[in-house]
Design a protein around this nucleic acid. Structure first.
Lengths: 184, 184
DNA sequence: ATCAAATGAATCTATGTTGATTCATTTGAT
DNA sequence: ATCAAATGAATCAACATAGATTCATTTGAT
């Protein structure tokens, strides 16, 4: 797959600081990521522009990751794995979006609208998986989408707090999502 | 089980407004829940006291719900179901806590400290389930705890956005957590 | 040693917000 | 109709914050 241009580490650090403390002032955010308020200003002049830039960066990265997963054509298990890997590969952007984004807000940017489309793409993928007999059909595709996102968020947040080892995340996600916690 | 005194609906509404818009001013919070700023003041005079009250109320309700689940003694499946029901029964408090609480913050209230204890209780429960051969052992008890919380949060948020029907939540949670999405 | 670029401390105006209060209005019971 | 309780609009002083700027300092390449 085409390797995308890496995201500015400072921007990712700001994203995590915003997730950790949504009410932080710009001064507090700057301090949390180890720069001055002026440097943060030079990266992005306003809070709204920071958020906007994070959303557009998330769209840029997830456009590529989702394309690479070939959700419409690849074998379902393979596509699912690639989708999970894509999320984990851009975990900071993903956690930022999942904490911040509210699909039902009326006024949204193009980037936020693109996440509405991503959501529909995920739903469609789970539906295809159900139709092909891979996923169970007694749980809706929408529920499968939401749970995938919720589980991924939980794993990323747990990794950050040291509750889960980074190397275990992909494997844990796949096992728990596909076969659950009950011993077979 | 002992039926606990219901939580003030206004307090729960405020909790959801805070989750939806963490940066809202007190004026905005009041408007979101349909009262004046003065009435919100009369419920709780400061933002910190609102948060404190929400945490103590969550502890009060979850103390009862967790006791009722008999996590240390009841059959694992039965205890698990009761634990899930307890969370869903107090979904607003639960979502507020899971969005707000950071276990690693140094200065925490008694209520927040109690949630550290709850986390340990959940870990212990999953460990017992593993030891009794009910839960898989190739995923850590900590991971099972975190995923339970993450899945529940996702389901509650999805219900609020209309993506999942309320009546499906308990069943979906149980099926997905125990047996996963892959068709058996 | 030099120097351009990057960064930070300090500062500013304008605005918003907090916490609190007061008095008018509404509500609901009688 | 009456009235106590509840509620809301408006207001206030004190303080915080946003966005922007400037000049000093640091950094890193040469």
């Amino acid at each position: 797959m085409i390797k995308s241009e890496a995201t500015d580490p400072l921007l990712l650090a700001v994203a995590m600081a915003m997730v950790d403390n949504p009410r932080a002032s710009l001064q507090e955010l700057a301090k949390a990521v180890g720069v001055s308020k002026a440097t943060l200003y030079r990266m992005c002049p306003t809070r709204d522009k920071i958020i906007e830039r994070l959303f557009s960066e998330s769209v840029r990265q997830f456009d590529l990751a989702i394309a690479a997963a070939e959700l419409e054509t690849a074998p379902v298990l393979q596509a699912f794995r690639a989708l999970i890997e894509g999320h984990l590969c851009h975990k900071e952007l993903f956690v930022f979006v999942s904490n911040t984004w509210e699909p039902q807000l009326l006024e949204t940017s193009d980037s936020e609208h693109r996440w509405v489309e991503f959501e529909a793409i995920f739903d469609k993928f789970f539906l295809r998986g159900q139709q092909e007999g891979f996923f169970r059909v007694d749980i809706s595709a929408a529920a499968l989408s939401e749970l995938m996102i919720g589980m991924l968020s939980a794993l990323v947040n747990s990794e950050r707090s040291g509750r889960i080892a980074p190397r275990d995340m992909l494997d844990t996600m796949e096992k728990m999502f596909l076969t659950g916690a009950q011993r077979l």
